[in-house]
């Protein structure tokens, strides 16, 4: 009881502390020195309409590589921990109730649509909000829908591992290409920059984001499949 009261007090304190933030949203302020430098330079340097993408992939590209590596380590840890023996759960698939025919059929129709929508999101990361991570999660959502519709189904492990390794290698390879052909590691100016707002613009950013998206999607799908619990 005491603990709950303390937690609630802390929550109310947070709400009070963040209250001024709610009133600042509509106020247009001058961006700071760093922000205005980014806003000014990134369309000129990389021809990326979405400044956030230019920051994430190019200016802070090394951070993103680290994030992808951390995600890989986390999913590998989940996969290693949640094998069937470790959980001590013997035949979980037998107890699970089957989904209706309606959900299975709808999954068959929706899967292609969701995979394509994920591809749209990570290929247009330099034009619209979203990018590799969001697109990867959408692709993982498609796999999740399949797991929900048929609990006994197996995801093709070989394909997943191949996609993950290939896209990871592509990501690092593009980064090295930037080091040799342009100004440094992960510099996207190895391809022509193109015109602002077209699909084939911003140098190698769409390719890098596609590699990140496929890698994140494959990793999260593998993690969800491990969580399903009845794998060998």
């Amino acid at each position: 009881m005491m603990r709950k009261v303390m937690v609630m007090l802390a929550l109310a304190g947070f709400a009070f502390a963040f209250l001024p933030l709610a009133f600042m949203a509509g106020v247009v302020k001058e961006p700071g020195a760093l922000a205005s430098a980014y806003l000014e330079n990134s369309p000129r340097d990389f021809a990326a309409a979405n400044v956030v993408t230019a920051i994430v992939v190019s200016y802070r590209g090394f951070d993103t590589l680290g994030e992808v590596a951390v995600l890989f380590a986390a999913t590998a840890g989940v996969g290693a921990l949640l094998t069937r023996k470790r959980l001590g759960v013997s035949e979980t698939a037998g107890n699970k109730r089957e989904a209706t025919e309606i959900l299975r059929t709808a999954t068959g129709i929706l899967t292609g649509l969701l995979v394509m929508f994920g591809a749209y999101i990570f290929m247009h990361g330099h034009l619209t909000p979203g990018g590799g991570f969001q697109g990867g999660v959408v692709i993982a959502t498609a796999v999740l829908l399949n797991l929900l519709a048929s609990p006994g189904a197996r995801v093709a492990h070989g394909v997943m591992t191949a996609v993950e390794s290939l896209s990871g290698a592509t990501y690092v390879g593009l980064g090295l290409l930037g080091a040799f052909l342009a100004w440094g590691f992960l510099d996207p100016r190895t391809l022509p920059l193109g015109t602002l707002g077209a699909l084939a613009s911003a140098g190698a950013i769409p390719l890098i984001y596609s590699a990140i998206g496929l890698k994140v999607g494959a990793e999260l799908s593998g993690m969800l499949e491990a969580l399903k619990g009845d794998r060998e």
Binding site: G108, I109, G112, A119, Y120, M123, A142, A198
Partner: peptide, 22 residues
């Protein structure tokens, strides 16, 4: 034109992917 070509490539890839029978 770029979008149309990219869309065609993605559509062919997704439709003929062995993972997701349509």
């Amino acid at each position: 034109g770029q979008e149309a070509i990219a869309g065609a490539i993605i559509a062919i890839l997704v439709a003929f992917l062995p993972l997701f029978p349509a």
